[in-house]
């Protein structure tokens, strides 16, 4: 059969304007990794359960495996690479390090982007709110307590 024509996408990723052609059936996850070359965003379950591929699109966190690259035309995308600045790590990244909130690290970019989505809108969430917000992110190593403590620490530091 005919291969569907690629889609022209103009988007902003981590503040940088980007323009590329994407296969219409390619996920945003693969678009970010394969086309934009940003491999911080991880593939986990590929069906919306684990949150490892979480990115921020226009201020909302989404599972990038369940978004098409073609859908982000005209939108603002933030990945884990967009968190640190030239002055250093984002407070969440620093807190994750200090609290040992990661072991194998595959879920970490998703947790960081998801947690930033919370703190951007609610700077001082309580523990219950943090746990509820992060229910869409799975970690098989840490047991979550260290992650929650890291988010609390980052929230207290900012």
């Amino acid at each position: 059969m005919d291969v569907p024509a690629k889609v022209h996408v103009r988007t902003t990723i981590n503040g940088q304007p980007q323009e590329f052609l994407v296969p219409p059936y390619m996920s945003l996850l693969d678009t970010i990794r394969e086309i934009a070359g940003l491999t911080g965003t991880k593939e986990g379950c590929l069906d919306g359960n684990c949150g490892a591929c979480t990115v921020n699109v226009d201020g909302r966190i989404v599972d990038s495996c369940l978004v098409l690259g073609a859908e982000v035309d005209g939108k603002n995308v933030t990945t884990v690479e967009g968190l640190a600045t030239r002055d250093g790590l984002h407070p969440l990244q620093q807190a994750f390090l200090e609290e040992a909130a990661l072991q194998c690290g595959i879920c970490t970019p998703g947790f960081l982007v998801a947690a930033k989505g919370l703190l951007d809108n609610e700077p001082k969430p309580d523990e219950g709110r943090i746990r509820h917000w992060l229910a869409g992110n799975l970690c098989r190593c840490t047991g979550y307590d260290k992650i929650v403590r890291a988010v609390q620490k980052a929230a207290a530091a900012t």
Binding site: G48, T54, V62, D63, G136
Partner: peptide, 9 residues
């Protein structure tokens, strides 16, 4: 329905 990521979409 789902988690926060799912509810965004």
């Amino acid at each position: 329905i789902g988690g926060i990521q799912i509810q965004s979409r």
